[in-house]
Design a binder for these strands. Sequence first.
DNA 1: TTATCTTTTAACAATACTATAACAATACTA
DNA 2: TAGTATTGTTATAGTATTGTTAAAAGATAA
Lengths: 230, 230
Amino acid sequence: MGEILIIDDDRELCALIKRSVIAEGIEADYCHNGKDGISKLKEKEYQLVILDVMMPGMDGFETLEQIRTTSSLPILMFTSKDDNASKVHGLRAGADDYLTKPFVMDELVARILSLIRRYTRFNQPEGLTQQLVFDGLKIDFDNRSVDAVNGIFELPPKEFDTLVFLAGHQGKIVTKQQIYESVWKEEYVYDDSNIMAIISRLRKKIEENPASPKYIQTVKGIGYRFNKEV
Amino acid sequence: MGEILIIDDDRELCALIKRSVIAEGIEADYCHNGKDGISKLKEKEYQLVILDVMMPGMDGFETLEQIRTTSSLPILMFTSKDDNASKVHGLRAGADDYLTKPFVMDELVARILSLIRRYTRFNQPEGLTQQLVFDGLKIDFDNRSVDAVNGIFELPPKEFDTLVFLAGHQGKIVTKQQIYESVWKEEYVYDDSNIMAIISRLRKKIEENPASPKYIQTVKGIGYRFNKEV
DNA sequence: TTATCTTTTAACAATACTATAACAATACTA
DNA sequence: TAGTATTGTTATAGTATTGTTAAAAGATAA
């Protein structure tokens, strides 16, 4: 299923996490400071990084920033204290999830699996279903088509990729920058016009009433969110 | 933990499975042909479907196909013969697992548990929602919304960012300059009017009595403080 | 107490953001 | 290459959000 990297100065904890995820079919590698972590990330391809806030030398936030300059891997942070400042700081800096120490191992494993799924679901369609099914909407990966109330449409590349990106982050807000970088694979230069045009074309196909969309909802000032209620 | 649906024409077997999974804390419902199964699936929400290939009327594969047009529930199929054709057929049609009759009940239960675990994790990244929770106030990062006494509000960008900044410095005094530089990301030029307007709008949403605020407290001459007692 | 200063709030103005249509440019396909 | 499909761009209108102003309330200090 993949390999994760654990960066935490608590050696016992690293080994413990490794054992737990291996039981789920996930490999794990670990190191005990930010610097080593960054060089490991350059050597090998990982699915996810677990990062402790409190470490000697470079702390978790600094490490996070460094990693984020080159990678969009999902990152889960351990906040040592249950303080909101760390949570907010971590989220702003680009962590995808956080967990407060001490934690229950089952919860950690569940979050790891969920994060990995979220980020790799579409690159490696695991198993059999090559489609995403929602109430009243079916996204078919084999044909790059959608089956919606308005009929079946083969979607052009940008439209399909945008829809998949949104649906893959179901319930989460995605910024226009994220959409752009994921779909266009180019640097985002503050121009949303084409994204908005694509969204408009998508909605015309999948939404019963594009003016009050059921699936692709707009989050003003930020981006869009694929409705998790469907 | 949830409820499963068994579709099998063998009535005794249905009852037996039901007893076995109830011992694991899982409810079970059953019916004896594909048609009834499909209508049951429309009525109630199940965690998993067990489906027999050999049934009078609509057979298992046909039922499976029907189910898959509207649902991505995990489906475990019983193949009556140990022939690979059935297995392959079932898996291709969208089953998530199969078991050959006759089977050992323990194995069935183990597979059911495993499938439910996989599926519920897959489908509930919202279990991992990122939020800050206070007494009577919940800040939800996924929706950029607050849930307060006055109701749930999706906050506009400046309001949300301001609230998060305050809550992230819970118990600490933050100056208007800090707020401005964090939220507006511009140089602060001695103009608080808009910050005060934002605070006023925020309080109207999250405070029961905006005139004597519980969460966002005024520190005259300096700025504000998010109450640490909440 | 008064004088001064800050904050609150409402009302309004200005701005920023979004949706969509229409068209232009580009990419793809036969 | 022509023809078509897709994407990018521009313009416009509508709306939500933010900024500004002013009046009133509250705090602070002499």
